[in-house]
Design a protein around this nucleic acid. Structure first.
Length: 907
RNA sequence: GGGCGAUUAGCUCAGUUGGUAGAGCGUCCGCUUGACUUGCGGAAGGCCAGUGGUUCGAAUCCACUAUCGCCCACCA
């Protein structure tokens, strides 16, 4: 006898099972004879940041990817899922710096210097990487740990530097002074799409500036403004264009010139503006167009520069703003202050530091230069990015993101890839300095590219891509944008730039599954890097894409639809807590069911508890089946000969239908639908009917085992632990993870017997409903008379079930017969069920009910009749639909007659 | 300002070529019925946001409106 406890205890099984999988090398790809990409299924796991904690977003991605991986593995493909972690430059460095500040080190970069700070970060990353690994294991992720990667590993560094140098040689990379998004808090530049906008209410000032009035929210940048721009179409200012004026300004008189440009919005502000090239994107572009010199007003710490103003130099932006306005007020130059001005403040999405546009020398990737040989033509990065999705080489699920992707590309500017932080791949560029510069540079602890700028190092002619021999070479102290290294993830993890067999077999990967929030940050950048790098290796275009499908999941929100954050601990859910409380399988289901690609989903604890209940239901279904399976059946193979009763045929037919549908759903990435169907089958069909029907002489042990095995296989991708745990009672040697996925088998479909059983179920439900309505004691057995017309013979085989499940003491089953007086009558299709319960029936009530039913049936019948009399319907509707409606009409007619007869019998 | 999405039972959501609206949770009534109280049986509850249009027929297709959410651009 099998000893199996009455409730599933997730904790007892999960870790053990995971270890067994891992030890048996089940996560490794199978060796295949033909090394074609077609027989493989590969996912590169989006590497979680090495900052420590697994959140629900990670849990979701791990659940979805694991479902795909397990499904494909069971289908016999050589399946590879590469795990890894991301060094996450800015995020990680800022976490460590914050920790150090808590320990009393106010300015870690200045106080520790590069080497020591990097050491601290490394230490932190090592422990948090371990944490991540364990958490990924907890989720049941069947990834190949022997191939774990890290974005800052040496191999990755080689790949990153190789890509950079190739791009550099192709002239795709340039070092240029551009206006960049500077975060004075983190002291680094950030990319355009790393900038977030926060709505803020501020003051908007109007100043008299020579012949015009200008409006601004940022008086502190306006010290050296001397160009007035107006729209040449603006009648108010047209006559001023080209003229020069002496203007009384913040620190005395300045000479101002008026120019005209269409970009000025006549309706905005006063219609006239002055420009500050160094701290505004629009102004910078104007200054380039009209060759206007620019001056840095605000330094890299976010303070007014001392050499710009004696009076205001060194002041914070906000302080300076107030003081300047005061001064202008005294001079009588302030005409108006608007207190309720709402604008968008730019902040860094990491750390939320206010962005100050600055002109700096940075490294950029040119996205418009046509250097990629693509489909017979030289094309730019932008064009290739566009083509991969437009030509359906890459499919985005859901495809509504196509548009968003294209729109992003249309607005794409050159990508600034240098960051003034230390945690990351240091830029492989060396500059020649002289002795003094070299010494001065190294005397500073807080080295960054802006030190180089100040020292005047970095003239184009003195670059080198590899460390040159000779003295006084300084490596660019900046690092690459993290996304520049993670852009190589799919192919660098397979060994690129080396030409490895893995790269040949496993690339392009099949699916990239991630949140839609990093479509641009990462997904687009991977397409960029992969197409460029692999095309350069002369691979065919179709082999250069990083993945064939992009599946984007939504964000997990709390029950109110808000983003989960630690600041709302009452609704914020920690996946590890939930695993502890309800088990991994329950958590996985709660993340998968109800989630459709690209749409956000709300999650709350009751939902997880609900799936814990289901997991327990699975366990008990397995338990009951196992306790009822004969020992000999474990040893013999299932054959069609084992099929006996109509109930067997029914459950097998349902199972085949399920197998077919789940297969379609999984292939179409409809994970929620697939899981729901399995859920429905197990609970509402297998447990509620088949197992109940098995309690008695008609039990069929071989079928029980066969269906159970299939259920466990179908469940496995979704709930790997409980399915594997149950499997271990069936098969001591082989693990479910390596079993073969069920296949649809036409021989196990029995239409006729199935519909008989369906009918019996409807009759049982009808009787149960009547019993409940008439308040018949649940234990009391009653008699029933059924006139089943042409179904009589078929239903005879269901006698045992009808008696047992409807709790009958006697059952008369006839073709037809006389009406029974004072009985409760139920009509199902063309079948009459009479329950002689005269003493329990409230005839008045019954009449009211019947009258209502007859009424609604009559109106429905009329509408059907009308439909079938409608020439338009008969002309346009499909044959099947018309046939269906005709049958329906006949049935309803018959039904109505019976209802009317019933009414009469009550009188 | 531009774009996208959502609006279906009290709550969370399905609804895959247009053909009498579904699930889970919650609610109500009743049950220790040979696994499961993390359970079993039954029931109530919806003019599918609104207005028009296409169609024999619309939750489903089209247009507009309203409310909510998101993304992008950007305000000198």
């Amino acid at each position: 006898m099998i000893n199996i406890e009455p409730a599933y205890e997730a904790k007892k099984y999960e870790n053990k099972i995971y270890q067994k999988w891992e030890k048996s090398s089940s996560f490794k790809p199978k060796k295949l004879k033909s090394k074609s990409n077609k027989d493989s299924f590969v996912i590169s796991m989006p590497p979680p940041n090495a900052t420590g904690i697994l959140h629900l977003g990670h849990a979701t991605m791990l659940a979805l990817q694991d479902i795909m991986i397990r499904f494909n593995r069971m289908q016999g493909k050589s399946t590879l899922w590469i795990p890894g972690t991301d060094h996450a430059g800015i995020a990680t460095q800022s976490v460590v710096e914050k920790n150090l500040q808590k320990q009393g080190i106010q300015n870690p970069r200045k106080e520790l210097g590069r080497e020591k700070l990097l050491k601290e970060i490394k230490k932190f990353v090592e422990t948090s990487k371990d944490q991540i690994r364990n958490q990924i294991r907890k989720m049941g992720a069947s990834c190949d740990w022997t191939r774990e990667k890290y974005t800052l590993h040496e191999d990755m560094n080689l790949a990153v530097n190789t890509l950079f140098s190739r791009m550099y040689k192709d002239d795709l990379i340039y070092h240029g002074s551009r206006i960049v998004n500077w975060d004075p808090k983190m002291k680094t530049t950030v990319a355009d799409d790393e900038v977030e906008y926060v709505e803020e209410k501020t003051k908007f000032y109007y100043f008299k500036y020579g012949p015009v009035t200008i409006g601004t929210a940022r008086p502190e940048t306006k010290f050296l403004d001397k160009i007035i721009v107006v729209n040449p179409k603006d009648k108010r200012f047209k006559h001023l264009i080209g003229k020069e004026f002496d203007v009384e300004w913040i620190e005395g008189k300045v000479k101002a010139k008026v120019i005209g440009d269409e970009c000025v919005d006549m309706k905005l502000g006063t219609g006239a503006m002055t420009i500050t090239p160094a701290h505004s994107l629009v102004d910078f572009e104007l200054s380039q167009k009209y060759k206007i010199e620019s001056h840095q007003i605000i330094d890299f710490d976010g303070k007014i520069r001392k050499d710009v103003s004696k009076e205001f130099g060194g002041m914070d932006i906000l302080e300076a703003r107030e003081k300047i306005v005061e001064k202008l007020q005294k001079k009588g130059l302030v005409t108006k202050i608007d207190e309720e001005y709402v604008h968008n403040l730019s902040v860094n999405y990491r750390g939320k530091g206010t962005i100050e546009p600055q002109i700096m020398k940075q490294w950029f990737i040119d996205v418009n230069k046509k250097v990629i040989q693509w489909k017979g033509k030289k094309r730019s990065i932008k064009e290739v990015l566009q083509d991969t999705v437009k030509s359906k080489m890459i499919e985005i699920v859901p495809n509504k993101f196509d548009k968003i992707y294209f729109h992003w590309i249309d607005n794409l500017r050159d990508w600034c890839i240098s960051r003034q932080i230390w945690w990351g791949h240091q830029i492989p560029i060396w500059y020649k300095a002289n002795k003094e510069q070299y010494q001065e540079f190294h005397a500073q602890k807080d080295v960054s590219s802006y030190n180089l700028g100040i020292l005047g190092i970095g003239k184009e002619s003195k670059f080198s891509l590899t460390k040159p021999t000779g003295n006084y070479w300084i490596q660019d102290p900046d690092t690459f944008d993290t996304w520049f290294s993670s852009a190589l993830w799919t192919f660098a993890t397979l060994g690129w730039p080396k030409k490895t067999p893995e790269l040949k077999q496993f690339h392009p990967t099949n699916v990239l599954e991630t949140g839609y929030d990093i479509l641009f940050f990462w997904v687009a950048r991977m397409i960029l890097a992969s197409t460029y790098a692999l095309r350069k290796d002369k691979l065919a275009e179709k082999d250069c894409i990083p993945f064939k499908t992009v599946y984007l999941h939504g964000l997990i929100r709390d029950r109110h639809g808000k983003k989960m954050s630690k600041s709302h601990p009452e609704t914020c859910i920690d996946p590890l807590d939930m695993i502890e409380k309800y088990g991994t399988d329950a958590l996985r289901l709660s993340l998968v069911v109800g989630s459709t690609p690209g749409n956000d989903m709300r999650l709350y604890e009751e939902k997880i508890a609900g799936y814990r209940n289901f997991v327990n239901k699975i366990w008990n279904a397995g338990r009951f089946a196992l306790l009822n399976i004969d020992a000999k059946d474990f040893k013999t193979a299932f054959t069609v000969k084992n099929v006996k009763t109509d109930n067997d045929k029914w459950i097998l037919t349902q199972l085949q239908k399920l197998i077919k549908e789940v297969d379609v759903d999984l292939n179409k990435y409809r994970f929620s639908d697939a899981a729901n169907k399995v859920y429905e089958f197990i609970w509402n069909q297998f447990c509620d009917w088949y197992l109940e029907e098995s309690k008695g002489p008609s039990k069929n042990s071989a079928i029980l085992l066969f269906v159970l095995k299939n259920i466990l296989k179908l469940l496995h991708p979704f709930v790997p632990f409980v399915s594997e745990a149950l499997w271990s009672f069936i098969d001591k040697k082989n693990q479910l993870i390596n079993e073969k996925w069920p296949e649809y088998d036409q021989r196990l479909v029995f239409k006729k017997e199935s519909s008989t059983v369906e009918l019996a179920h409807q009759i049982i439900t009808g009787i149960r409903s009547a019993r409940s309505e008439l308040k018949v004691e649940p234990n009391k057995k009653i008699s029933a008379v059924i006139y089943a017309a042409n179904s009589t013979k078929n239903l005879e085989s269901q006698r045992e079930n009808l008696m047992k499940l409807a709790r009958l003491e006697s059952l008369e089953l006839k073709y037809h017969g006389e009406k029974i007086k004072n009985a409760k009558t139920i009509i199902i299709k063309n079948i009459e069920i009479h329950l002689p319960l005269a003493n329990l029936i409230d005839f008045a009530k019954e009449k009211v009910k019947l009258t209502k039913e007859i009424e609604s049936k009559t109106t429905y019948l009329n509408s059907l009749q009308n439909k079938l009399n409608n020439p338009g319907f008969l002309k346009n509707a499909s044959k099947e639909v018309i046939q269906k409606e005709k049958e329906r009409l006949e049935l309803e007619k018959e039904n109505l007659v019976k209802l009317k007869e019933q009414m009469q019998s009550l009188n």
